[in-house]
Amino acid sequence: MSKALNRVFKRNRNFPWQTLDSETVIIDPENQFSFELNEVGSLIWNHLDGQTSLSKIKERILETYDQNEEEVEMDLLSLVGQLAESHLIQMV
């Protein structure tokens, strides 16, 4: 398991968001921009609460969806990387 999975992130409160019908909309009020996450992305986003580690989130995904563990890990780290780069989340 990648060491990165021990990390814990939390959502940046400067970006309002909501999950509707398993899809998540995140608003960047400063730049009048918005992001959209699909069902799996929404599951990840909803668990980025400053308490749940990425490994726990990976477990949740594997419990919910029938997917290959390695692919899940790669996709999870990739999405978290993008979210962090856009300052939508920060490491705790």
Partner: peptide, 21 residues
């Protein structure tokens, strides 16, 4: 929010009676 996404969310809220605001 960009217009298309806002419109999609707004439509969903009306159709499904989701109190977006």
């Amino acid at each position: 929010m960009n217009k298309d996404l806002f419109e999609k969310v707004r439509k969903k809220s009306v159709e499904q009676a989701i109190p977006l605001q």
